[in-house]
Design a protein around this nucleic acid. Sequence first.
DNA 1: TCATTTCTGATGTACGTAAATCAAATTTTT
DNA 2: AAAAATTTGATTTACGTACATCAGAAATGA
Lengths: 341, 341
Amino acid sequence: MRPTVHDIAAAAGVSLATVDRVLNQRPGVRHVTREKVEAAIREIGYVRDVAAANLAKGRTYSFVFIVPASDNSFMHGLNAEVMAAVARSPVERTDIRTVEVPAFDPAALAAALDTLRAERPAGVALVATDAPEVRDAVDRMVQDGIPVVTVVSDLTGSLRHHYAGVDNIAAGRTAARLLGRFLGGAKGDVAVLAGSMLVRDHRERLEGFSAVMADEFPDLSILPVIEGRDDPDMAHMLVSDALSKRDGIIGVYSLGAGNRGLIRALKETSVARVLTVVAHELTDHTRAALLDGTIDAILNQDAGHEVRSAIRVLKAKADGLSVIDAQERIRLDIFLKDNLP
Amino acid sequence: MRPTVHDIAAAAGVSLATVDRVLNQRPGVRHVTREKVEAAIREIGYVRDVAAANLAKGRTYSFVFIVPASDNSFMHGLNAEVMAAVARSPVERTDIRTVEVPAFDPAALAAALDTLRAERPAGVALVATDAPEVRDAVDRMVQDGIPVVTVVSDLTGSLRHHYAGVDNIAAGRTAARLLGRFLGGAKGDVAVLAGSMLVRDHRERLEGFSAVMADEFPDLSILPVIEGRDDPDMAHMLVSDALSKRDGIIGVYSLGAGNRGLIRALKETSVARVLTVVAHELTDHTRAALLDGTIDAILNQDAGHEVRSAIRVLKAKADGLSVIDAQERIRLDIFLKDNLP
DNA sequence: TCATTTCTGATGTACGTAAATCAAATTTTT
DNA sequence: AAAAATTTGATTTACGTACATCAGAAATGA
C-alpha cells in the first residue's frame, strides 16, 4: 500500500497537523521538526496523492492561452485545439481561457501578460513574439511564481519553464536534406518562400536550411528569400513572378504558413517543368497538393500535441510534479503522400 | 461549478441512494425511475468525477503487459518503457505487471491470455502474434469484459479495443518512396532485409514497399527478401553475400530489427560503392550509422509513446471514458541525420 | 385485504488530503 | 520564575463518490 500522511506522522513521531504544515509549507514548525518530517517523507517514499489533494482543495487550475489573432490555417488549427481542450477542461479540473492579442505586436503581448499577472492564474501558455519586452514580462510572471510555457514559438533567454514546439533549426536542416536528396545531384536554383523574417521560427528554419544547403548541396544555390507575409495573393504573385523570371529554379522551400498562393502558382507553371517542393504545415490545401504531386514533402508540427503538452506541463508545474521529457518533446512530422494521417 | 450526484438527485427528485444505484448499475431501481435519473444526468450534463470515484473505491488498476521474450534492441527498448511506466505506476494508481512469453509462439501466447483471464485484471496489453488461437483468446478476454489493446503488432479480425502501433503498410510505402526519390531515377536492384515473413508487421511493411516500388519506381527491381531472423550474424552473412554477388544493388531496405549485422556488412563494402539505405527502428547502432552516412533514413515507432498510449487507453476503457483519438495515433517517425532527437 | 416482494430513502462510513480551530506543551523573553 | 510567544497535538469538517445497512413506501400477488 502507498504510504499516506498518517504514515509520515507515525514515522516522524509527530502529529498529522505538523505533517500537514510541513507538506504545505505553512508556518509554525521549528526547523529541527521540519527536517525530521522531511527525512521521514524521503525515507518511506511518500508521494502526495494529487487526486485526493485536489479533491480536498476543491481546486480547479485556471490556465490562460495567449494566442495571436492571425488568421492563417495553422493558427486556426491551434485555436481549434485550444477550444477542444476547453471543452474537455471540466473533466480535468481545469478552467482554460484564451486571450487574443494582435499578431507580431510585442508591446501588446507584454501588456497582456502584465494584466494577466495581476489575476494570478495557475499557469499561462503563449505563442511568443521574440522581443525583449515580452521576455521581461514573462520573467516577471515566472518570478511571481506563475508557471509559463511557450507554444509554437519560443523565447530564448527567458525564464519560461518549457517550450512546447519543434526545433525549427532542425526543421530547416531536414527540409534542406529532403530537397537536396530528392533533387538527386541536379544543379540549379532553390526558391525560399517565408512569411516574414521578423518571426523567430521562420528565421531559424531558414538558418538551418541554408546551413545544410551550403555544406552538403553546393550545386544548389538559394535565391533571395521571398517574403509573402503569409498572404495567399501576395505569395502567389511573388512566386509566379520568380518562376517566370528565373528558369533555373528546380526546387522550392516554403517555410511559412501562406501555402495557398504558392500552390496556385505552382499549378500554373507548365507541366513540362518539374519542381521539387518541400513545405511546412499540414492543412487541407497542402494535403491535397501533396497527394496530387504538387508538393513532395510536408513538414508539420502537431498543434493538438502542442496544446495538450502545454497543459500537461502547466499542470505538473502547478502541482510541483516532474514531467516525462520524452513525452513532451514535440516531434517534427515528415509527411510524404504515403504516411498522411 | 460542476454538477455532482447531489444535483442529479435534486433534479430527478429522488434520493442520493437511488442516483448511486443508477450510476453504478446496482439492482433495485424501477425502470421508470432509472429513466428519470438518466434523463436528469443528461440534462444537467453530469460527468462522474473519476478522481473522487477512484479515491472512494480505493481502486488501483491492475494492468498486465504481455511481451515477447526476444532480445533485439527494439524489444529491449519496449521493455524499458514498460518498466519506466511501472516505476511511475504508484503515482497513477496503477499496478502494472509484465508477463514474458516465448516470441512467435501463438500457442504460448494464447495460453498466457487464458491464464490471465482467470485473474481478471483491469486491462491487458499485448504484442500480438497474428494467429487464430491468439485472436480467439483475445476475444474471450474481451467478452469477459476485460479491456485489451495490442501494441506494436496488431491482430486484425479480433475484438481488441485498440491498437497502439504504427500503420505498417504506410511505413513500407513511405520507405519505398524515400528510397526511390533518394535514388533519383537511377536504375538497379534493391535488397530487402527482413526478420521473418511469419511476422505480420514485417509482411505488411514489405507489402507497402513492394506496391509503391512497382507503381512508381519501375526502374528499381526488388530482389528476393533476405530473412535474417533479426540475428546480427546471420544478417551480416546474408547481406555480405548478396552485395558481393549482385553488383546491381544500389539500395537497401531493412524492415526488421537486426540492423547491427547489416551495418557491419555495409561498412565492409568498398568505399567506391554508394548505397542508399533505409532502415527501421532507431537504436544506438542505427543512430550512429545515420550520422556517419551509412544509413540515409530511419523509420521509427516510439516505444515509449506506444506504452503510454496503451496505458491511457486501458485506463479510459476501465473507467468507461472516451479517448482522444488524435492523441493516441502512433505516428511513423522519419529521421534524417538532421532531426534526430 | 393482507402478506409478500420489490423499490426507494435516509444515513453513515470510507478514501487521502487540506484547512481550520483550540488546547496543550514547549521555548523564549522579560 | 512568570509572562509571552512560539511550536505542536488533537480533533473536526470538507471535497465527490462508493458502498453498505436498515427502515419505510409502493407495487404485486394471493
